[in-house]
């Protein structure tokens, strides 16, 4: 597995949110480029973002700070950040640090859809 990679998917017709895949390690080294990319996306008035964490193998406190920063910024703009399918290990880190109450964590895209456009 690559140490770190990030893909921002193009906006799809009819999709209410932008999808981002992050792969590998999110630590104090890789977080700089991660934040730059995500904040760049938010600068384009995107307020609904889903980050696929299913291939994120490790997250450090710096990575969690970055996710928290994004959550704050999106909620201020009445938007939302949704985290899709974190691995057990990453989920355990969220839970230990108490972030499972704050982050919106989902298991499927359908579930994310429900958060972004509640019927």
């Amino acid at each position: 597995m690559k140490n770190y990679d990030l893909t921002i998917h193009e906006a799809q017709d009819g999709e209410s949110f932008r999808r981002v895949d992050v792969i590998g390690c999110l630590d104090s080294h890789t977080v700089v480029s991660f934040e730059k990319a995500l904040h760049g996306l938010l600068d384009q008035s995107v307020n609904s973002v889903m980050i696929d964490l299913s291939e994120l193998s490790y997250i450090s406190s710096a990575g969690i700070s970055a996710l928290m920063g994004l959550t704050h910024r999106l909620r201020k703009a009445s938007g939302e950040l949704v985290l899709l399918s974190p691995t057990d290990k990453v989920y355990r880190v969220f839970r230990t640090l108490g972030f499972t109450n704050i982050f919106k964590i989902v298991d499927s895209e359908a579930e994310a859809e429900g958060i972004f456009s509640p019927s």
Binding site: M68, T96, L97, G98, F99, N101, I102
Partner: peptide, 19 residues
């Protein structure tokens, strides 16, 4: 043993009070 509670320095109020 892991009773609920979140880190310091992030939020005040209802989320932190879950500790």
């Amino acid at each position: 043993r892991e009773p609920p509670g979140m880190v310091l320095g992030m939020v005040e109020g209802e989320f932190f009070d879950l500790i």
